[in-house]
C-alpha cells in the first residue's frame, strides 16, 4: 500500500520534472511512467536485500533500456525519456547530508556520505552505460573506437 502511494507520488514528481525540462508533450507521461518503474525496481531490489548501489544499477539499467527501446520506436531523442527515467535515483538526500555534515564540522560523517553519494551517482552512470552498450552492439558507439578490422 505504501509502495503504491510512493509510485503515484513518483509519477507526479517526475511529471513535474518533465515540465521543468520541457519534455515534448507526447512523451511527458511515458517519461513519468518510466520514472515510476525505476522507483518500483529500486524498492524491489532493496526489499530483496540487494545492496543499494547494486539496486541503483539495476533500476537505472532497466529504465535506460526501456527508454532506448521506446525512443527508437517513436523516433525521439533518447534523453527525453532517459532523464525522467533516472531522476528518482538521484542521490539528493545523501548529497544534502554530505553538505550538512561538513557545515557542522563532522568531517568523517561528511566523507562517508560523500563516498555514498559518489557511488550512487556512479551506479546511475553504470546503468546508463550498460543500456547504451546493449543498444549499440555491432554498430559501435559513434564508430570512434575502431578495432582495426
Amino acid at each position: 500500500m505504501d509502495l503504491l502511494l510512493e509510485i503515484i507520488i513518483t509519477f507526479i514528481a517526475i511529471l513535474g520534472f518533465g515540465i521543468i525540462l520541457s519534455v515534448p508533450r507526447r512523451v511527458l507521461f511515458i517519461g513519468a511512467g518510466i520514472g515510476s518503474w525505476t522507483w518500483l525496481a529500486l524498492q524491489t531490489g532493496l526489499h530483496l536485500g540487494i545492496n543499494d548501489v547494486v539496486s541503483t544499477v539495476i533500476a537505472s539499467f532497466t529504465a535506460a533500456t526501456i527508454a532506448h527501446y521506446l525512443a527508437k520506436k517513436i523516433h525521439i531523442p533518447v534523453t527525453t525519456l532517459s532523464i525522467p527515467g533516472i531522476l528518482p535515483l538521484v542521490p539528493g538526500s545523501r548529497a544534502y547530508f554530505t553538505m550538512l555534515s561538513f557545515v557542522e564540522g563532522e568531517y568523517l560523517d561528511g566523507l562517508e556520505f560523500g563516498v555514498e553519494t559518489m557511488l550512487q551517482a556512479g551506479g546511475i552512470a553504470a546503468g546508463l552505460v550498460l543500456a547504451l552498450s546493449l543498444f549499440s552492439f555491432g554498430k559501435g558507439i559513434g564508430n570512434r573506437y575502431e578495432t582495426g578490422s
Binding site: E6, I9, T10, I12, A13, I14, L15, G16, F17, G18, I19, I20, W39, P88, G92, S93
Partner: peptide, 15 residues
C-alpha cells in the same frame, strides 16, 4: 507549479 510538485514529491520519497 511543476517545480513545486517535483519538490514536494521528492521530499516524501526521501523519507
Amino acid at each position: 507549479l511543476a517545480a513545486g510538485a517535483a519538490g514536494g514529491g521528492f521530499s516524501y520519497l526521501f523519507g
